[in-house]
Structures are given as C-alpha cells and as structure tokens.
Write a protein that binds this DNA or RNA. Structure first.
Length: 289
DNA sequence: AAGACGGGGTA
DNA sequence: TACCCAGTCTT
C-alpha cells in the first residue's frame, strides 16, 4: 500500500484547507451535523451563509426542535431538497427526546437519526468527534478511484470492495485519520474535480495511476443528464418558492406564476408536497407552508 | 438496485 | 445548454 500518497495529501491540506466555519475547533457537534446535512448535494459556497444564519437562530438542537416549521423552511431557502429541512428538525427533536439535546458519537445512534445516512454518520464522527472512521463521499471516491485505481469516475453505488479499500487507506492514528478524511475530501473538492481536474496543482500528480495511464475516460462517466425543465421536481420547487415568499395562504391553481403548469401535474405536485409535510391546506383552496 | 428528490454556479 | 454537487429514503 503506497502510504506516501496519504502523507502527501495530508501535507497539501495544511496549506490548501479552506477556512470554513464548521471546521472551527470551537464549532459544536450540532454545528457540524447541520453543515453535513446542508452539504448533502448542495455546494459549500451556497451552504455557508445559510449555515451561519441557521446556527445563529437555532444554536442548539433544543432550539430547532421547538421552531415553527414555516420559519424552518424559509430559513432553508433555496438550498434545495427541502425535505432535508424537515428531517433536520425531526433530527433535532430526536436529539432532545433521546439524547438529552446532544449529538451522539456512536454510529448506530447517528444512523437512527432522521436524515443521517452512512456518509453523514461517518462525517460527524470524524469531524465533530475526531473518531477514526471511513468517510466516503463522491469527492473521496473520485480521488481514490483515480489515484489508486486509475478510474475516472466512481460507480453509481458504493460496493463492499470499495468501502474496504478506502478503509485500508485511513491512517491508524486517530488524529491522522481525522486529518486524512478532511484532506482527501478537500482535494476532491478543489483539485481532483469531476469535470476539469487541476492535475498540475495536485500533490499526487507524480504518483497518480490515472494520470500515469493518460487520464482515460474524462468527461464520459457522466451518465444521462437528469431531466429538469418541466419535471415534477421543478414544479414542486416553484410552488414552494411561492409559498416561502407569501404572507397569507395562496390559491395555487389560479396563481399567475403557475399558469403555464399543466393542471394535472400541478395537482399531483401539490398532493405530494402535502404528503411530504412541506405544505398544508389552508382556508378554501389555498395552501401555506 | 433503481428512482425520486432542488437549485444555482460554471464551462 | 449540460453537467455538477460533503446523500438519503422509499419501493
């Protein structure tokens, strides 16, 4: 196992690490957990201001647990996947109910929390508690795949073999493990990017298997572009955007900003939003957060 | 194992 | 315009 690659990434991180508020040594485990949930599919630059406002408003799980849902959804704003906001509040309630208002450090307890899956549980353990764990997000998988395995893009699903290989890279030492997890993720986010990797800036360039074989497959593994325009997801987003801005309940089916939406699709989306608990029927045929 | 689920920045 | 992003949950 070429350990010197691991060392090179950790040394690179010493100079290149971004100064992010949830990396502050004084940041609470709750702050780390909030950041990780927000960062699920939303880039750092958009999360940072929302995270600061969120933490100022609800500094502890107990604060968020008793917040009004419409306020929570408005604070979530345009981060996307708003069901995460509801899960985060459910998570806060679970923390106050089951864990005395604190974030647990045991994997099993973390995984039992709403909105916390394999990645987030590992990330909280590593970044909030300094535990030695295997943190595998899309960045880490891409770096390992390229530098050690010579593949341009990771598979759609995490395999047992991939998890096992990544585990073998994590340093035995607790502090080094924590540094490695943050460092390799940062390398994937800043240098070993998906579309346009900056190999000339990479500490692994001279040791990278993928570079050695000529960087094959760049731009290929992209898969089919996910449809967006006119999808239910887009319509749901538009409905939510209207209700976030509204002071009073809104009659959606006659709303001018939704006039171009097929009535059947609009009805389907409104129904699903109600089922998801994101909106609720108000007076008459109007809806609100 | 596959599909659903937001939204905006970037090339 | 197309692609990408610190994933999770449901079926």
């Amino acid at each position: 196992m070429p350990r010197h690659l691991v060392t090179a990434v950790m040394e690179w991180f010493g100079d290149a690490a971004r100064d992010l508020p949830w990396r502050d040594p004084d940041c609470s485990p709750w702050g780390v957990l909030v950041s990780e949930v927000m960062l699920q599919q939303t880039p750092v630059v958009r999360v940072e201001p929302a995270w600061r406002a969120w933490m100022e408003r609800w500094p502890e799980p107990a604060d968020l647990a008793v917040a009004d849902q419409p306020e929570v959804l408005r604070a979530w704003g345009r981060l996307g996947y708003p069901r995460r906001a509801l899960r985060l509040q459910e998570c806060a309630r679970a923390l106050t109910d089951r864990h005395g208002g604190a974030v647990p450090s045991a994997t099993e307890e973390l995984l039992a929390l709403p909105g916390v899956g394999e990645y987030t549980a590992a990330a909280v353990r590593a970044f909030a508690f300094g535990e030695r764990d295997v943190v595998l997000d899309t960045n880490v998988r891409r770096v390992i795949g390229r530098a050690w395995n010579g593949t341009a893009y990771p598979r759609a699903h995490l395999t047992r073999a991939e998890r096992s290989f990544a585990a073998g890279l994590v340093p035995e030492d607790r502090d080094e493990a924590a540094t490695w997890n943050a460092a390799v993720m940062e390398l994937g986010a800043l240098v070993c990017t998906s579309r346009a990797p900056q190999c000339a800036q990479c500490p692994l360039e001279s040791d990278c298997t993928w570079v050695a074989i000529g960087r094959p497959g760049l731009g290929e593994g992209a898969g089919r572009s996910q449809a967006w325009h006119g999808t239910d997801r887009q319509v749901r987003g538009r409905v939510l955007a209207i209700l976030r801005e509204a002071v009073d309940p809104v009659a959606l089916e006659t709303h001018p900003a939704l006039a171009d939406v097929d009535p059947g699709q609009l009805d389907r989306c409104v129904t699903s939003l109600v089922e998801d608990g994101l909106i609720r029927p108000a007076s008459g045929a109007a809806y609100s957060l």
